[in-house]
Structure formats: C-alpha cells, structure tokens
Design a protein around this nucleic acid. Structure first.
Lengths: 64, 64
DNA sequence: CCCCTATGCAATATATACATTACATTTGTT
DNA sequence: AACAAATGTAATGTATATATTGCATAGGGG
C-alpha cells in the first residue's frame, strides 16, 4: 500500500465521489491516487488531508 | 512564505544545486519550489524531505 | 435474482510539472 | 572595485497529472 487515503476515506464512510467533489478533482483521480498509480501534486495532497482531517504525514509519509 | 525548503536547506548550508542533484531535479525546479511558484509532486516532496532530514509536515504543512 | 450505488478501467484530450539552455542579477570575499 | 559562486529568470520543449466520456464489474439490499 502506498498511502492511507482509501483506508481513511472508508473509515469516514465517504465515497470516492464525495471526496473528489470536495477537493475538486474527478472520481477517477481519487481512484488512481488510492491505488498508488500516480503521483499527486502537493496542493491536492494538502486538500485531501484537510478534507479527511489528517496531515500530510498521516496520509502520505512512509507508507510503503 | 509557502514552505520551509529554503530555510531548511540554508540551515544545512546546502546550495540549491546540491539539493537538486540529490533529489534528481534541476536547480531551477528547486528555486521555483522555494519561491512557492509551483506545485511539486508528492514524490519530489518526499525526496526533498528525506534529503533534508525532515518530514512532509515539517516542510510543507500549513506554512502559508 | 434484480436494482442501484460505488468502484474499476480504458481511450483520448488538456493543463501543468519539470527539463534544457542561456543569460542576468545578487551576494560574499579579497 | 573586481571576481566567483549562488541564485533569479525567461523561452521553449517534453513528460505526466488530471479531465472527460463511456462502459464494465463488484457488492449490498430489496
């Protein structure tokens, strides 16, 4: 696993689409980030972290 | 100030070029990131943090 | 089983991160 | 002041993050 986005999102009973809307990207983008299949930009990481009530380190640091 | 890369790099008496080499980007990329003029990818942020002995949160979280 | 919602996935298009090159400017040192 | 190293900056090119559309699949509740 490359990051904790999926785990944290599900913990909060949020769908990919809801998260995507709140950070203003598409559902596909969230899906690919969760799979670790691509390399999001810092701003998007920060936006995701804020919506999920976490920090960058919580979601993206040393997860592999 | 948008992030603490410049501060931390100078604290360690490292030049932009040295940091750039170690994270395998160009000096220009480091310069622009330090100025907050662009939005680096997560992998690059992680690489910079590791070279500087910091975490993502240390360098990029809530600095504005 | 049948819906319905959430997620996966693929093709193509667009925006932008980053490279490359080159030159200007700043800053420190003598 | 003069020199050198570090940094700023601008133009153009390339790679890739993200959008868009559309359809397939998975899984839970009736």
């Amino acid at each position: 696993m490359k990051n904790k986005v999926k785990f944290t999102r599900m913990e909060q009973k949020m769908t990919q689409e809801q998260l995507a809307r709140r950070v203003r990207v598409t559902r596909q983008t969230i899906g690919l980030i969760e799979k670790g299949e691509y390399n999001p930009t810092l701003q998007l990481c920060v936006a995701i972290a804020k919506v999920l009530g976490k920090t960058l380190d919580d979601l993206f640091w040393e997860v592999e």
